[in-house]
Nucleic acid binder design. Structure first.
Lengths: 253, 253
DNA sequence: CGCGAAGTTGAATGGGATCAAAGCACGTGG
DNA sequence: CCACGTGCTTTGATCCCATTCAACTTCGCG
């Protein structure tokens, strides 16, 4: 077993919708060999409003999507991880509808629209995968809208944590240790809160035994409890003093 | 000139994306003759999660979209007017992604997916119109997300009013009298507020001379002022007592 | 080691929610 | 025609959750 790589796993294409047509992923010499792009934390992949010339499947790392309204109000609108695809709007619009910024060292492919469009026309499998991806994104956005519109802060944060864990499970990671590549500020923006509130809630979740947090490493200890918080909001109220002997699980490795 | 119809104008197809292929709209005998549906206030057009067998262009009246999350939290997610199309997700999904309920007496067409799909395949014009409609909807949802996530109540309401006015202008109505078919509660749900807050803000906007409200009739007096409220939020703060002689415009006709 | 960015924690404030009570429009039936 | 009931709206008083302001700690990196 090789030594552990940085914090994220090596480039992973297993969830990429373009995998069957991609030489990087399946090795077929006759297939597409996409250009790749590498980004460092803070680098901008593309900017909202600029011409959309490609879509960008993420191979490793992580990015945030930032949306800016017509009058200049910005908000984080999503976090994308390996297996997700940035800029899918390119296949039916000519401009990007959000800005994408790397949260950590990130590697992604770039598939030009001139390559993409024939692929979508000719391959029903890929087309279906892309449509499915768009619908998942729309559904998540609708759920987020309701969360921000009518749920309390604790519910929103619980939702995000469960969401991140589900995403992680979807890409096959077994142990429940999440790495939050984004800052507290990014999380707060995404959830319509402030960074202080996010920090306080993470501490409170930790005190309640739902999670273990240490900086950007997070382990979900009690998924059912988190789900209860998401559904109820008052499930974790006062930071009850943990009495005496409570040999909780050791800190995150 | 016939006497004025109820409160909304007669069935209007001028903005319908399917107009060029529709006998109701263009009179071409060889074209499609869609089935029509009539609803009374409160009637349900379709329900989230049920099989999507058709799309429903609205000819007259108005409806609200209601989205329900996986754990049963509901929120109004949009208001649709004549020229809009309900259930457009049908062309790539097999289930409706929201519930649609009539706000008033409403008339709409029903175009079965079996009819829709060939139409979209063969007619680039219609396809483009449908894509444009979906993108406008996505953009509006993103703006709403930022508004609910980080704007104050007054800003959100100003945004909605300006939006409704713009929609009305888009369908060619000249005088600026809006008819709010939805209740204060619907507005509040859509904006992530409570009905009391919406009511108070409408009164405050009225006192500030931005609008004239009386029940569900609303006239925008000062669009620029409203835009300032949308951008700033503090533009209309204290309900300043209107001093003395201020012969404001007469009540809404 | 020292600096800046990110995170934690506390205390005070405020905006919107909640609770409560009238007021108003509209349909229904006496 | 008017009395009545119901649902929607308005307005007031109070409360509470999240924001704001501020101080301090921790981490990452030159």
């Amino acid at each position: 077993m090789p030594p552990q790589l940085s914090t994220s796993s090596a480039p992973c294409c297993t969830l990429c919708p373009f995998r069957p047509a991609c030489r990087l992923a399946c090795g077929n010499a006759a297939s597409l060999m996409p250009r790749t792009v590498t980004l460092r934390a803070g680098d901008v992949l593309y900017i909202q409003g600029r011409a959309a010339r490609a879509v960008y499947p993420i191979r490793a790392g992580g990015v945030k999507q930032v949306f800016e309204t017509g009058i200049g109000w910005r908000q984080v609108s999503g976090f994308l991880q390996p297996g997700d695809v940035c800029g899918l709007e390119a296949h039916e619009a000519d401009a990007h509808d959000a800005t994408v910024i790397a949260l950590q060292d990130t590697e992604c492919c770039a598939i030009a629209v001139e390559t993409l469009r024939p692929m979508l026309r000719d391959d029903p499998g890929i087309r279906a995968a892309v449509v499915a991806m768009q619908r998942r994104h729309a559904r998540r956005q609708a759920e987020l809208l309701v969360a921000i519109g009518s749920m309390k802060a604790a519910q929103r944060l619980a939702m995000l944590l469960l969401d991140l864990a589900a995403e992680q499970a979807r890409r096959g990671v077994a142990d429940g240790v999440l790495t939050l590549a984004m800052t507290r500020n990014d999380i707060a923006s995404y959830l319509g809160l402030t960074l202080e509130t996010v920090s306080r809630l993470l501490s409170r979740f930790g005190a309640a035994g739902l999670i273990i947090v240490r900086q950007r490493k997070l382990r979900i200890v009690d998924p059912d409890g988190l789900a209860a918080v998401h559904a109820d909001g008052d499930a974790v109220a006062a930071p009850a003093p943990p009495a005496a002997a409570q040999a909780g699980p050791p800190a995150i490795p």
